[in-house]
Design a protein around this nucleic acid. Structure first.
Lengths: 350, 350
DNA sequence: GTCAACGACTAATGCGCTTTAGTGTGTTAC
DNA sequence: GTAACACACTAAAGCGCATTAGTCGTTGAC
């Protein structure tokens, strides 16, 4: 037996109690001209008193937009729930959205096709006013799709900054190149010449940028034994790749991991094989988190303020929603935080 | 210069192209009687062809509900993005919701008051049809609030299973008691007599349950040196508590951590102090994750299928949304997965 | 003293959909 | 042959809000 729920007040209730028409209420509450200041105040008071909030459905229906922003995460369930990146990003995003009363519609799907399908559905259902697109890829179909649908979006993470962004698609990207350069510089300074980069998914745009930069740096400094291998970001593949590297004839003296999870897994592999860190192997994690600080030794990591990144992305989206221009902005260069997992390259190494 | 976006098809477009009235279309597409099977098929075909999807706003406005479920996470930003628990839970929840075309409105806030405020706003805005409530507490104000608002909800994680759930508030809880008993049993069997439980936030209901069970088990087995200490789940407090415990006169021979992050931090503290694990100290983590498998030694952990937990929670919510009865269900007992971090108690210990 | 202009407000319409109340046609019953 | 009825469908109202087009009374200009 369910009790009858409390009734939600509508604009009509306010109108009745304030002794005015519904339109007057609408004008008053939306700051439109057409009502005297005294009635406006009275109406505001009544609305407050009744705990009135505009029905998003009704608003949306009368052309005001859904007051909602969408975010889809396309990741196989297996690699989920590991990285610290997303919740932090989302938390930053929220901060900004909440200030404008915007909701965040969130969905996790298996792959890119499913993600595009979600976009189409949301568009047809008029569920969202704009989108945050994460994990951009080389040859990404999403920006074009969203542009065609007329949905404003901010591509966050790493698309090619080149080219004028089309339509209402903004772009916010991290300076992976500068970051990679600083990592290589750090390791080079410690005497490392054989460096392996255990990267993430090869189809992601930022993976490619990091790999390209590593190659360029290696060429510039004349290091033949520098390479990248790609993984799916999971601890399993991170560990596996580490094992392969350490088992080789001329193992690297330093490994750079594309996320914190793999770095921790790599550290465990080193421990298991009796390879001392950092004496025989230096480890760098791309993206800092509790993990990196909780291991022994603590991991040298690339620190960036992910929540701030999320805030900035949300702000760009607000600009678009307000009809502002699409832009392409580069985020601050992440900072390398040296900890105990990096040290001078082993002298004995050939 | 923005191009005019593609127009969304409406029911009217379908009606025109199919040569019937709008109501006929509505009947046809919603499986209502009132149209012949041949027209129904024709209308379906046209709708498909046009890529039509019902506008959620319009649906909501005509009394069908918002087709959206809400989930609020009240956590200080500091402790965010660490645990694997949430994304996995959400991923399970999504799977079920997506099958019904329901969206998930997600919000991160600072504290419980803010969470309640969000509920009130969502209710007044008619944004959600139901809610998933996480992190239940002792003396939790949320179920009563939601009941008053007439919003169906599933409290997920651990409220008191006692008492008839009121209104449309279901409850899904993990068997913390059985789990704690199995952990203590495991450790006791290995010869451990001095056990410390480094727990999470004291105000959470499941923290209390775990602590109570630990006390009961200790009393039952006559173990005087067993106790719980509470933390905020952060690696910092986990490490700090560990340090305090190990520095005491009669340090524990086993520590049980209430989450994976603290367990990893505790392991690092042991390493830093030269305490061998598991030779001198056994470690158990409550909740398994990549972390536990990535350390060296790997951590013995309490494994539960969080995604499945999420799926079940979502299913309970669907039952409520369909007008079904509120229930209180206990989830499967988590399984303890022994790994390298637990071993026989040190003989030399007094 | 009349007319225009303005300010404060109300009436009416539409957004896209569901739903209730019809309308018209064909079938059956007696 | 007509009343009763089922069936396929249409017309219209309503959900809560924004918005456009009025209405009415007051003021100012000449």
């Amino acid at each position: 037996m369910r009790r009858t729920p409390a009734r939600r007040p509508t604009i009509k209730d306010i109108a009745r109690r304030a002794g005015v028409s519904e339109s007057a209420v609408s004008f008053a509450l939306n700051g439109r001209p057409g009502v005297s200041e005294v009635t406006r105040a009275r109406i505001r008071r009544v609305a407050e008193q009744l705990g009135w909030q505009p029905s998003t459905a009704a608003r949306a229906l009368s052309g005001e937009g859904a007051a909602t922003v969408g975010l889809v995460l396309a990741r196989p369930a297996r690699t989920l729930g590991v990285e610290s990146f997303f919740l932090q990003l989302v938390s930053g995003v929220q901060e900004v959205l909440a200030g404008r009363g915007l909701g965040l519609l969130f969905q996790v799907v298996e792959d890119l096709d499913a993600e595009c399908a979600v976009y189409r559905r949301w568009w047809a259902e008029r569920r969202v006013d704009g989108l945050l697109v994460v994990d951009p890829r080389a040859d990404d179909p999403r920006p074009a799709l969203l542009d065609r649908l007329g949905l404003p979006a901010v591509v966050v993470g790493a698309p090619d900054g080149r080219g004028v962004p089309h339509g209402a698609i903004s772009t916010l990207w991290a300076d992976d190149t500068g970051a990679m350069a600083s990592i290589v510089g750090h390791l080079y300074g410690l005497g490392h010449r054989r460096i392996t980069h255990i990267a993430g998914l090869p189809e992601l745009a930022h993976t490619r940028r990091r790999m390209a930069c590593l190659r360029a740096e290696a060429a510039r400094r004349g290091l033949p034994d520098v390479r990248s291998v790609t993984t799916d970001y999971s601890d399993a593949q991170g560990a596996e790749a580490t094992r392969r590297e350490l088992a080789g004839g001329r193992p690297p003296t330093a490994i750079v991991y594309d996320n914190d999870v793999m770095a921790v897994a790599g550290l465990a592999v080193a421990a298991e094989r009796g390879v001392p860190v950092p004496a025989a192997l230096s480890i760098v994690a791309w993206d800092d988190s509790v993990l990196c600080r909780s291991t022994h030794p603590a991991l040298t990591a690339l620190v960036r303020d992910t929540a701030a990144f999320g805030r900035r992305a949300a702000q760009q989206l607000l600009v678009l929603l307000d009809g502002g221009p699409a832009v392409s902005v580069q985020d601050a260069v992440p900072r390398l935080s040296p900890r105990a997992s990096t040290g001078p390259a082993c002298r004995g190494a050939p």
